[in-house]
């Protein structure tokens, strides 16, 4: 195996062997979906067709939440690993910094997508509309959003000097990115400041395309080019920032 593959292999092996991470990233969003979905169900009115119930509306958001959790769990370890753990050895090795960034971002994205897909399997059991072709394209889009979230989370994890500092980033940046994407409530289609802000969020574009593909929920602005392209651009921006920051620290 080359260096990138072996680091990827490590991340996946770690995930498989840590059962608590499966629960964190799968059961939590599921529970969240059921509790919030049932609780808010009666108060919700679908701004689109008017026919989609809240459990169905919220389902793609819950899938995205599991991707977000995986992005957080797989990058938070960087902080201690870098100063007191395994990554010390990677940082003094002859490998370039980009190998480290790729291994972390790809692993987070693969694992996030895998868990998203496990949740999406419910689509075929639940009485929601789920066209097969759309679901397959949706998986690709989920991978892209997963790359994006992991790259953002990785950059901030690398920049954090402590785990508690990263919790701040999680609460102030990553969770709002998820909430403001139209996952919990519709954000687009109004003139509010919230709706304008949401346009800068790559997840807003990704999630609305995802909703249209997997569930046929045409809400707000749906633009597949932006849905696939914008999260990819944000991935590259944060990948580059992370790579630069690591290179500045270790000289290559």
């Amino acid at each position: 195996m080359n260096a990138l593959n072996s680091l990827l292999y490590r991340e996946i092996l770690r995930f498989v062997r840590q059962r608590s991470r499966w629960i964190g990233a799968l059961a939590t969003p599921l529970l969240f979906w059921l509790l919030v979905g049932t609780g808010l169900g009666s108060a919700f009115q679908d701004p689109g067709s008017g026919r989609v119930g809240y459990l169905e509306f919220f389902f793609p958001g819950a899938v995205l939440l599991s991707v977000l959790f995986t992005a957080i769990f797989s990058t938070i370890s960087v902080i201690e690993d870098r100063d007191k753990g395994f990554l010390q050895g990677v940082l003094v090795s002859p490998q370039s910094s980009s190998v480290l960034v790729w291994s972390k971002v790809l692993a987070g994205a693969i694992l996030g997508t895998l868990q998203g897909v496990l949740l999406m399997a419910l689509l075929f059991v639940l009485p929601f509309k789920a066209p097969l072709m759309g679901v397959l394209l949706g998986v690709v889009l989920l991978f892209i959003m997963s790359l994006c979230l992991t790259a953002v989370a990785f950059f901030f994890a690398w920049k954090s000097s402590s785990v508690s500092g990263f919790h701040g980033v999680m609460n102030m940046i990553l969770m709002p990115m998820w909430i403001m994407s139209g996952s919990v409530f519709p954000v687009l289609g109004s003139d509010s400041i919230l709706a304008k802000l949401a346009l800068f969020n790559p997840l807003t574009w990704g999630l609305s395309s995802f909703k249209m593909l997997v569930g046929g929920q045409p809400i707000g602005i749906v633009d597949l080019a932006m849905g696939f392209g914008y999260p990819l651009i944000v991935t590259l921006v944060f990948w580059t920032l992370a790579n630069r920051s690591i290179s500045a620290r270790r000289g290559a």
Partner: peptide, 14 residues
Amino acid sequence: LGVTFQNPSLDGIL
């Protein structure tokens, strides 16, 4: 270079 750090650099799960 071979480096042994003061803090462990092994992955304990592996």
